[in-house]
């Protein structure tokens, strides 16, 4: 890989991720808009959102002012040098912040200082995943803070929810989390769930589900059926866009699983706001491709 142009390509990936809503999400928002009653606050909210998404796309402006935390999932050819890649990512982030594609979003929790460049302890988060291909794949997720705040992690059994250690228990957790969130996480959300794992791997696993397209099929048939049931029932809650009330409370539900310890049964839920920002850049030889 030629590292010299990488930084420039990464700035473009950040710009693209921040300013263009993925087409599957935009289509789901359009469908939701059509379903709402004429003159209702829900219909108005969808209209405003779709207009704003258009402006962002046309004028290269961030879809949301909260450009979130940068989470990277990078597939690399086994044996590659990674330190220069990490360096290029950091300097691309600095540049994209200067160009207003990102808001200065990293704050020291003790001193309150904002370095103004989106860098700091744990920022960005980079997952490097080796694979046998010769090409590189950079997946970027910009995860907003408002929706991050309404994410949740449950430990089963949960007496208050009457939730045991099975799919019915998981179902109760997901319904509770979306009810608790109301409109706070910029509904309609995309609900990303991981069943099992540990406290940290479960949450990371839930967030990983955000890379899936809304209209894909879960290869695990049990989980696929479970996702469809959750999608149908969550939309019965009537919370609607922004919590105004309405027919669409969630745009999608994605569920994965991880093996757990006998003693632990976690249900981790990452709530992604409607402004899902994810995109992919693939590098193979001299060719660069951006998609979302």
């Amino acid at each position: 890989m030629k590292y010299s142009k990488l930084e420039e390509n990464l700035v473009e990936l950040i710009r693209f991720t921040s300013t263009v809503l993925p087409p599957d999400v935009e289509n789901a928002m359009k469908t939701a808009w059509r379903r709402e009653l004429k003159g209702s606050p829900a219909k108005g909210a969808f209209k405003t959102i779709l207009e704003s998404v258009d402006i962002s796309n046309l004028c290269s402006l961030p879809v949301c002012q909260d450009t979130g935390a940068l989470v990277w999932y990078i597939h690399y050819p086994d044996g590659s040098e990674l330190i220069p890649v990490e360096k290029a990512i950091k300097s691309a982030i600095r540049k994209a912040t200067d160009e207003s594609y990102l808001r200065p979003n990293s704050v020291d929790p003790v001193t309150g200082e904002n370095p103004g460049n989106n860098l700091g302890n744990g920022s960005p988060t980079i997952h490097f995943i080796p694979w046998k291909k010769k090409s590189w794949e950079f997946n970027l997720l910009l995860k907003g803070g408002g929706s991050e705040n309404v994410g949740a992690q449950y430990r089963l059994p949960d007496v208050a929810l009457n939730a045991g250690r099975d799919l019915d228990g998981v179902y109760k957790c997901v319904l509770d989390a979306v009810y608790q969130a109301q409109g706070q996480g910029c509904a309609p959300g995309i609900i990303c769930v991981c069943i099992g794992g540990s406290r940290d791997s479960g949450m990371a696993g839930a967030k990983l589900q955000a890379l899936r397209k809304l209209d894909d099929t879960n290869p695990d048939t049990v989980l696929d059926k479970f996702e469809k049931k959750l999608f149908r029932d969550l939309n019965k809650l009537g919370i609607g866009p922004m919590g105004f009330g309405g027919k669409t409370t969630v745009l999608g539900v994605k569920v994965g699983k991880q093996h757990r310890l006998p003693a632990s049964y976690f249900v981790s839920i990452a709530y992604v706001c409607w402004a899902m920002r994810r995109a992919t850049m693939t590098l193979s030889g001299d060719r660069v491709k951006y998609s979302n």
Partner: peptide, 27 residues
């Protein structure tokens, strides 16, 4: 409307002043 950030900015025609910029631009 949450997330309608580009559309809402169109109605902001002038920045008159800023106070406590030391909190960082978001704050």
């Amino acid at each position: 409307t949450g997330g309608a950030a580009a559309k809402l900015a169109e109605s902001m025609i002038e920045v008159l002043d800023v106070k406590k910029l030391e909190f960082g631009t978001p704050e």
